[in-house]
Every structure is written in structure tokens, then in C-alpha cells.
Design a protein around this nucleic acid. Structure first.
Lengths: 127, 127
DNA sequence: AAAAGTATGCACCTTTTGGTAAGTACCCAA
DNA sequence: TTGGGTACTTACCAAAAGGTGCATACTTTT
């Protein structure tokens, strides 16, 4: 940990490496849904990832593609038909996210209570 | 996935639950270092989490404590001596992060190349 | 008396991030 | 001719997030 493998970014540990690669509110969810349902169309992915805007989804898809985490296939049709899929690198990364999916599913009730308390706490501050 | 367990936040899936709980640039790293070295002092934690400011570290520690993810122990001494440790909930969450640590360590070289290309690409845009 | 150390607070600021709104291109259907 | 659908672009903007700089309290050390 006292030496970094690469000088480009100063990674502090393995977790730092991964987090920087998937930094972006929607990227982990994009990978998750591509793992579950991929390859899928742009529109289908947008519906799966609730709440994201076109502008940001496209932006983060471009970044993931540039980083060789996902693969984009344009069928050159009209209307446009484009598929997104995980690369081998992306697949291994998405699989590493699975324990977080499992953890969230198993602890959903407790986390919901935590968020309810957060809401109460924020309301208290607002007054 | 069409029904959410709780109405407080509209979770889309288990991963969404987890990501929202640890949303914050430094939180995953805080959990990671507490798992590796905990319980530890504030100063030691700050050194382990490279680059974070006091203001933000304290803020995110407060949030994690409020969410029952970590536990803070003030020994009421002068100079101040404060320990931070994982709660059982926090420990299980930190353990779910371990595959991401492993993935990052195993793919560090390739990710470093990705970041190098990003730098090249950004330089191109800057000119 | 001044400095050091530890953990933390706070006002203000900069940067980052995600979103809105309007637009594009082109074929097909109405 | 107009509207719909798909995937995507772009200018501008608001909110969120993280950081800076200075300060606090108190004991011990110099």
C-alpha cells in the first residue's frame, strides 16, 4: 500500500482502483442491468435504470465504452437500433458488484429504516 | 423489482439500496480501512484515506455513525482520543466490498492503462 | 509564554455532477 | 404534410459535494 503500481493515478488500494473506474451515479446500475439482461437496447436499458436522463445515460455509456467496460453495437438501421453489452472486463467487474446487490436485498428493511430516520433528522434540521 | 419494499426511497434493486447507503466519495474507503485496521484513531484513519479533508472526513464519519454503520468511541481525554470501528451491520457491508478490492487489485495494471488513455483523451480535448 | 498535538467546527468557495429543454436525423404511418 | 419512434446532441443551469482557511479547547512540552 505504500507503493502505487502506476504513477498515472495515485491509487491507494484495490478498492480505490475499482471505485474510480465506476465513479458516476448510474454506472454500477448500468453494469448490473447489463449483467442481468444484456445485451439490451438503449431504450430498454433506460427503462431499467430508473430516473436517469438521456443526456447523462449516454454520457456514462460513452465513458464505459471508452474504458472497455461495455461494448456498443450499432446495427445501422432506421430507426436506430443499438445494443449494449458487457465486455469480459466489464462482466468480471459486474460480478464483483453482486455481493453488494445481495447485501442490499438482504438488508433492505434495515436500510429503509435508516433512510426513514434520515428523513426525520433532516426534517428536524429544516425547522 | 416492480414493487418496492419501502416507500421511503424508491429502491430499484438491491444494488441501489447499498449504493445509496454508502454514497459519498470517501465512505467505501472508510469502511475498507476500518475493516483492515479497525478500531482506529481519527488521525490514523485520515492518513489511511489519502487526500480527504478534515471537514469532509468528519462529516462522512458522522453520517456513517448516524446510519449505524460505524461506532465512535470518545475516551474523554486531553488531547482528544477517539476510536472508530465497524458495527455488525457495517462489517457485513465492508465484507461485501471485498470483491471490489480484489477486482481492483487483480486488474490494477489494466485500469492504469485505461486511466492513461483517459488522460491522453482529455489532453486532446483541452487543446 | 509559546508551540505542539488531537479532533472538530464553520463560513465561504470551487468543482463536479446530474438534469432540463430544445433540438437532430431519418424512415414509416396516418 | 404531420406525427411518432429511436438514439443521441448541446447549451445552459441548479444542486450537490468536496475543499480551503482559519478557528476552538486543553494539556503537555519546550
Amino acid at each position: 500500500m505504500s507503493e502505487t503500481v502506476s504513477s498515472v493515478p495515485g491509487f491507494t488500494c484495490g478498492l480505490d482502483v475499482t471505485l474510480r473506474l465506476i465513479a458516476g451515479k448510474w454506472k454500477p446500475l448500468i453494469l448490473y442491468f447489463l449483467l442481468q439482461q444484456g445485451p439490451i437496447r438503449y431504450g430498454q436499458l433506460k427503462r431499467a435504470v430508473h430516473g436517469v436522463s438521456d443526456k447523462v445515460l449516454i454520457q456514462q455509456l460513452k465513458e464505459l465504452e471508452a474504458d472497455n467496460v461495455i461494448k456498443r453495437t450499432d446495427y445501422q438501421e432506421i430507426p436506430p437500433r443499438v445494443d449494449y453489452a458487457l465486455t469480459p472486463l466489464g462482466r468480471s467487474l459486474a460480478e464483483a458488484l453482486e455481493p453488494l446487490c445481495l447485501w442490499g436485498s438482504q438488508n433492505m428493511a434495515q436500510v429503509a429504516r435508516i433512510f426513514a430516520e434520515r428523513a426525520t433528522w433532516c426534517e428536524g434540521k429544516a425547522s
